[in-house]
Nucleic acid binder design. Structure first.
Length: 942
RNA sequence: GCCGAAGUGGCGGAACAGGCAUACGCGCGCGACUCAAAAUCGCGUGAGGGUGACCUCAUGUGGGUUCGAUUCCCACCUUCGGCACCA
């Protein structure tokens, strides 16, 4: 079996050899085979930037290994590859090097194909799909028309995010970070009012929140859930004094009685109508500022609230209170109804706004913690008050109050204490003074009685009284503003928790856990509001002002307006002779031949839409494109065409396992789910989710633990590594070095270890071993077989759970044990042959080339990649002798070797009589003996 | 601020479902081979103590549950990621 010449392991020789052979044989061609179960393994397609980097390898090589494992498990596996080929870098290259985006892209693809081949992955190249080829983007355009026909594509003028560097609008998902920068180039975006095309992804918001059919990582589910941002509440209709209904969305209808003002977004359509002549100028100025502000760079840290009064008033529908209507940029036109009710007592933002502009703040929800505070001003009470407090067990400290002397800072807990305090205060308060209790209760004690802060009216009354007594508070516009000037009170002036309703007319006393529901029901009955759900998710802005993308198949006709290009005329081709302006503007806008066309409806002159589609559209359906790339059946296309071969779809879909980076959690991974759900509703597929299982790999950092970048000079180039170590070593190291989902810094010494491992495997399999004449012992043979079968079990479990690092470690362990056995008479036995065969088979998914070479050299028929995954025999894998740990009071004191099937009583006996146990139980009483079969005996002593 | 993930030797990391912490690899030390070095092979390698058998401590920190906790619960600290005036 061993070849006579013990060649060295030279991956550079064997790898290209096998790659050629596999390709020539079509070994990885995946065709429909009803006799076998299918497995569609998909890994995210690369953008053809020109070079495959180590991150691509890290994503693809382990994915390939797993696809190969599934194949050995008997599945008919589809593992395709393609290129997400539209996008900006191609245009930038065109500007910089004067090379056409198409040429640039295709030559990059050529190079990347070579690099991908060097990986030795089982890609089925006959299913390759490139999104910038007309045969592909014809279908991307077709999807646009289908969405348009279904009412899911619409054009709207609105303020959208625009990247000045990329010269194009962006979807909300593509604007990242605190400074709201472009996901691609990092430039902070600006706002622009533009007519843009949108996809109605919000129609699917509710369904997109349902992850019950898919096994996706928790963090992706969480990110998508947060991104969609569902919140339940109510829509309530307020009416302006001039009878204009203003609808607000609130999650806290239970705080309605505390709404003391309204705020509209500056762009709200009612603003112009509501604004009174006196306020018009200020409102106009503010609107202008607000629009401009988003164009200036946003320094978003703790922006102070701004806003202006419109001069108009609305009536609070629950209590008839007349409340002012303001506009402010902290209210977004894009969320809810673009208008809010201001409840400053129970919303931090509204509180801040009300304090700044002197709007009344009335608490309407009780504090659940019962905390209240009171500041006793110096000289406001008779002597002995502090002693009374002490006697009553009331917590307080003495401290300076401004520069007027020593006061008492009192902290109260619960109604009983507060009532007692009020009593004391009434007895001790000196004439012409007042004292207030703030927090759990809102009580103002004057020398002639007490007043509660329970309405806007009370606010005015109390404030007037206070000003009378103490004129230096005269500048305050509300009671809360006055209280707010004392830092002691600040943390109890508002709270956002649920609690019993107070100061809320007939609802006063309603407990917090039912308040929202009760009020909502009542609102519905009254016809002034209704239950409502809001989402943070926005419709998907798909227009891009770029040349290098799939054209939006729309023409604009003076007579007929917006007219979709007929299906039969697809694709709308990108003109090849377009000149990319150095400004980076859209070349299509200046391409007369493209721009001017005839209206498909009336035949008159018309202009084409020059915006192209977000490249995320191309990648939203690529898993379907792979089934039958550039599908020709529907040529010319028709509304009822299929973008892929339904026979292929019926067999392969949906994707069983999807692998890729987490950075797409709220972009590609939401879009493709949306696409699939629309496709289902259009009757194109019969399932709800595109990918059943998703696993994310982490990121490989440079050796300096920093993100790899050319400027840092810490980039690891896979081509160099393949040249030095061979692809198998690179693949195995990428699987071994880190927890796959976490990634981490590259280690150029770590890969040496894996390289040594493969050399040891080579030698283990091929170099001659024991040459003596002793007969092998039965126990040694059993031990080897046990290890082999345990290794099969472990390798299988690890592959199932994507635990690639332990999968490799397990093979290293097996190899280490085999290397020892090799120097014994076990070498050459049947058990040895089984071990060698198993090692090669288990290694095949990770290191396909060396496995194929060793397989052939050990006399097996080509190909190792058509072999079945080994099966372990539980009986052979079972341990006969086990090490039983002997603990005394939970500490390991001894280890004893016992038969695996030892009886409990016997195990306990042996444990008790063991040296270690004896040492630590001597002179003590054994209280309990715990036996965990196969693991340990724990002796509890006292 | 909110949401999520992760903290284990010098390093990457392992540990079924609460049961031997540190598998596997890197690095390091010693040894063999060599005139020498590299490569390779062998042995050792969490910290501290003891001549020794052994003992004590150690999975971010502090508590708790348990016969027993890296694992479960509570609080906190650090790092990373996402969101961010979302009503």
């Amino acid at each position: 079996m061993v070849t006579s010449s013990i060649d060295r392991y030279i991956p550079q020789e064997i790898e290209p050899k096998w790659q050629k052979r596999w390709e020539a044989d079509g070994l990885y061609r995946s065709v429909i085979d009803e006799s076998r179960p299918k497995h569609y393994a998909l890994t995210m397609l690369p953008y053809p930037s020109g070079d495959l980097h180590i991150g691509h390898w890290y994503a693809m090589a382990p994915s390939d290994a797993r696809a190969r494992y599934m194949r050995m498990r008997g599945y008919n596996v589809l593992f395709p590859m393609g290129f997400d080929a539209f996008g900006l870098p191609a245009e930038n290259a065109a500007i910089r090097h004067g090379i056409h985006p198409f040429k640039w892209t295709m030559s990059n693809i050529e190079n990347m194909r070579r690099q991908l081949r060097s990986m030795g992955a089982m890609f089925d190249w006959e299913r390759e799909a490139i999104s910038c080829l007309p045969g592909y983007y014809k279908w991307t355009e077709w999807f646009f028309l289908k969405f348009y026909d279904a009412g899911l594509a619409y054009r709207k003028k609105s303020a959208v995010d625009f990247c000045p560097q990329c010269n194009t609008t962006l979807a909300r998902e593509q604007v990242w970070g605190e400074d709201r920068h472009c996901e691609r180039c990092g430039t902070p975006v600006i706002k622009k009012e533009l007519e843009q095309w949108f996809f109605r992804i919000t129609d699917y918001a509710e369904e997109l929140l349902d992850f019950s059919q898919i096994d996706w990582p928790e963090r992706v589910v969480t990110m998508q859930t947060n991104w969609i941002g569902r919140s339940e509440g109510a829509e309530v209709t307020f009416v302006s004094e001039r009878e204009d209904p203003i609808v607000v969305f609130t999650t806290r209808p239970d705080t309605l009685w505390g709404a003391t003002f309204m705020v509209l977004a500056p762009e709200h359509p009612l603003v112009d109508k509501l604004t009174t002549p006196e306020c018009r100028q200020a409102v106009e100025n503010y609107k202008f500022q607000a629009a401009r502000q988003s164009e200036i760079e946003r320094l978003s840290t703790e922006k102070e609230k701004t806003g202006v009064f419109t001069g108009a008033y609305a009536i609070n529908p629950v209590n008839g209170e007349r409340i002012p209507i303001w506009i402010a940029d902290y209210v977004m036109m894009t969320y809810g109804t673009g208008a809010i009710m201001g409840v400053p007592s129970h919303d931090e933002r509204d509180f801040e706004f009300a304090i700044k502009f002197g709007l009344p703040i009335i608490p309407v929800i009780d504090r659940r913690d019962g905390l209240a505070k009171s500041l006793v001003f110096p000289g406001s009470v008779r002597d002995g008050f502090a002693d009374e407090l002490r006697a009553a067990g009331i917590e307080f400290v003495t401290g300076p109050v401004g520069d007027v002397g020593e006061g008492l800072y009192v902290i109260l807990h619960g109604d009983e204490q507060i009532d007692h305090y009020v009593e004391l205060m009434r007895a001790y308060l000196l004439p012409n003074n007042w004292n207030e209790i703030v927090g759990a209760r809102w009580i103002f004690i004057f020398d002639d009685g007490i007043q509660e802060l329970n309405s806007v009216e009370a606010d005015r009354r109390i404030l007037a009284r206070c000003k009378e007594i103490y004129p230096s508070v005269s500048h305050n516009r509300t009671v809360m503003e006055m209280l707010h000037s004392l830092p002691f009170y600040r943390d109890v002036l508002f709270h956002a928790e649920y609690g019993t309703m107070i100061n809320s007319g007939p609802f006063t006393g309603t407990p917090g856990d039912v308040a929202v529901k009760k009020v909502t029901e009542w609102l519905e009955k009254q016809g002034i509001g209704k239950f409502a759900v809001n989402y943070r998710l926005r419709d998907w802005l798909i227009s891009r002002q770029r040349y290098w993308g799939a054209p939006i198949p729309i023409v604009y006709c003076d007579k007929c307006g917006t007219v979709p290009v007929p299906y039969e005329d697809l694709p709308v081709l990108l003109p090849e002779d377009a000149e990319i302006p150095p400004s980076g503007e859209n070349a299509l806008k200046y391409h007369e031949g493209f721009l001017h066309t005839t209206c498909p409806r009336c035949g008159g002159p018309a202009e084409r839409e020059t915006d192209t589609m977000d490249t995320f559209l191309c990648s939203s359906w690529y898993q379907y494109a792979y089934l039958s790339p550039y599908y020709k059946e529907g040529d010319p296309a028709h509304s009822d065409s299929m973008p892929f071969d339904p026979k292929e779809g019926a067999y392969w879909l949906p994707v069983d396992v999807y692998t890729g980076g987490i950075e797409h959690a709220t972009m590609h991974l939401i879009y493709t789910r949306f696409f699939t759900k629309v496709m289902r509703d259009l009757g194109l597929v019969d399932f709800d989710e595109p990918m059943l299982v998703l696993r994310n790999q982490g990121i490989i950092l440079g050796e300096d633990s920093e993100k790899m970048s050319k400027s840092r000079g810490n980039v690891i180039a896979p081509d160099d590594l393949v040249e030095k170590y061979g692809a198998d070593t690179v693949r195995a190291y990428l699987m071994f070095g880190w927890r796959w989902e976490l990634g981490g810094p590259w280690d150029s010494q770590g890969i040496e270890g894996v390289s040594r491992f493969l050399e040891r495997v080579w030698n283990c399999v091929l170099a001659p071993g024991y040459g003596g004449s002793e007969e092998p012992g039965e126990i040694e043979i059993r031990n080897l077989r046990r290890k082999v079968h345990q290794a099969i079990r472990k390798a299988t479990e690890d592959m199932e759970s994507f635990s690639f690092n332990t999968y490799i470690a397990n093979l290293m362990e097996l190899n280490n044990i085999m290397l020892k056995a090799k120097e014994t008479p076990v070498y050459g036995t049947e058990a040895w042959e089984e071990a060698v065969k198993t090692l090669v088979l288990l290694l095949a998914p990770a290191c396909p080339h060396i496995a194929e070479e060793l397989w052939t050299r050990t006399g097996h028929p080509y190909s190792v990649h058509q072999q079945a995954w080994p099966v372990w025999d539980p009986e052979i894998a079972a341990e006969e002798i086990i090490t039983l740990v002997v603990q005394v009071n939970g500490k390991v004191r001894d280890r004893i070797e016992v038969p695996a099937d030892i009886a409990e009583e016997q195990a306990k006996e042996l444990a008790l009589s063991s040296n270690g146990a004896q040492r630590h139980t001597a002179g003590k009483t054994v209280q309990e003996v715990i036996y965990v079969p196969g693991r340990l005996v724990n002796i509890v002593v006292k």
